[in-house]
Simulated scan of single mutants.
Amino acid sequence: MAATAAGRTEFPLTIQEMAQRSGFSEPTLRYYEKVGLLGVVPRDDSSGHRRYDTRLAERVDALACLRSSGMSVADMRRYLTLLAEGDREAAAAQRDLFARHAERLSAEIERLRVRQAYMRGKADMWDARHRGDAAAETRAIEQVERALQDF
């Protein structure tokens, strides 16, 4: 990534630098441009290569945060549309968008907890079997069965 001697990022960034900064792949950045999440990405006059200025890099950073939380492209597009409407005008819709997504994350976390309990039970079962502890194995099997009921 282009950086100054003081460690600050130097803009504009190439697509490779933007990919490194955001964690998105280069094809993902091209796709996000194609579907309108980034708008038109300026090009270098001589080479035609994409160049990401500060404003665009900040947008990519925001999209990276949203995507890392599992937000869909459609919801990211909705977020950007609402953002363009202005803070006050779109505040309730933004709240609803993020609240719905937070609920989806809560449900996903619960599913992960169930899977974790299943895996922990299986590990405990195999550990008990390895040690020859029949009582601990029975408790672990019961834990696995409870987790399976929650699936």
Rank of each mutant, 00 (worst) to 15 (best):
R21T: 00
R129E: 01
R146I: 01
T81C: 07
D133Q: 02
A6W: 02
Y31A: 04
F11M: 03
D44I: 07
H49S: 07
A91D: 08
D45A: 13
R43Y: 12
G70K: 09
G132E: 06
R95M: 10
R30V: 01
E85A: 10
R120N: 07
L63F: 10
S106H: 12
A93T: 11
I109L: 15
F11Y: 15
R8F: 11
R77N: 13
R21D: 00
V73F: 03
F11N: 02
I109T: 12
R129H: 04
A92G: 10
D124G: 14
V60W: 00
Q94V: 14
G121N: 05
Y118N: 09
E108S: 12
R51V: 03
H101Y: 05
S46G: 11
M71W: 02
G121Q: 01
A136Y: 08
A90Q: 09
T4E: 08
E110A: 10
M71E: 06
L66G: 08
A62Q: 09
G36T: 13
T28R: 05
A99M: 08
R111H: 14
Y32Q: 07
E10N: 10
A134P: 07
R50H: 06
A84W: 02
V114E: 11
E145N: 13
A3G: 03
R8K: 13
H49R: 13
Q116L: 08
G48W: 10
R95T: 14
Q20H: 05
A2R: 14
V73W: 02
E10K: 13
D61C: 04
A74D: 14
A3L: 08
G7L: 04
A99G: 01
A5R: 14
T28Y: 01
A6Y: 04
R67H: 14
T54E: 11
D44T: 11
V41W: 09
I109W: 03
R111Q: 15
L63S: 04
E85V: 08
E33D: 07
Y31I: 04
Y79I: 10
D133N: 12
M125P: 00
H130C: 09
I15S: 10
A128N: 09
R8M: 03
